[in-house]
């Protein structure tokens, strides 16, 4: 009946990290901070894919959560804030 009978302990630790990471991503309400927490959650997912003997999805998830997701989220945040600025402030850059 023990979990360790079927799971290698490393897999159990990584599964626990993923289980803890998901509510952290959801509970972070500020989108800017959430982009960072999502990146860390992505790394925990990469570890999970590696211990599940899946190197190709692990590479894809690493690249995506490190490059692509932060980019689109931060660009969306910047655009959703930038349009409310007054024209004079933009001209000072």
């Amino acid at each position: 009946m023990t979990v360790a009978a079927t799971l290698v302990p490393l897999q159990a630790v990584v599964f626990a990290l993923v289980v803890l990471g998901a509510p952290l991503v959801v509970l972070t309400r500020d989108p800017l901070r959430q982009a960072l927490v999502n990146g860390v959650y992505g790394v925990s997912l990469v570890l999970l894919f590696v211990v599940l003997a899946a190197p190709d999805p692990a590479l894809s998830m690493l690249v995506v959560s490190g490059i692509a997701y932060p980019l689109v989220i931060l660009a969306a945040i910047a655009r959703s804030r930038g349009e409310r600025r007054r024209p004079k402030e933009l001209g000072d850059d």
């Binding site: 190197p55 190709d56 692990a58 590479l59 894809s60 690249v63 995506v64 490059i67 692509a68």
Partner: peptide
């Protein structure tokens, strides 16, 4: 390298493409 050796070692066109786009970014 990821795109070219994708079908021999782990990798492939999908992660390799994102890395290339990230480098240009």
């Amino acid at each position: 390298w990821l795109v070219a050796f994708g079908y021999i070692t782990p990798g492939g066109g999908f992660p390799g493409g994102v890395v290339l786009a990230g480098a240009i970014l």
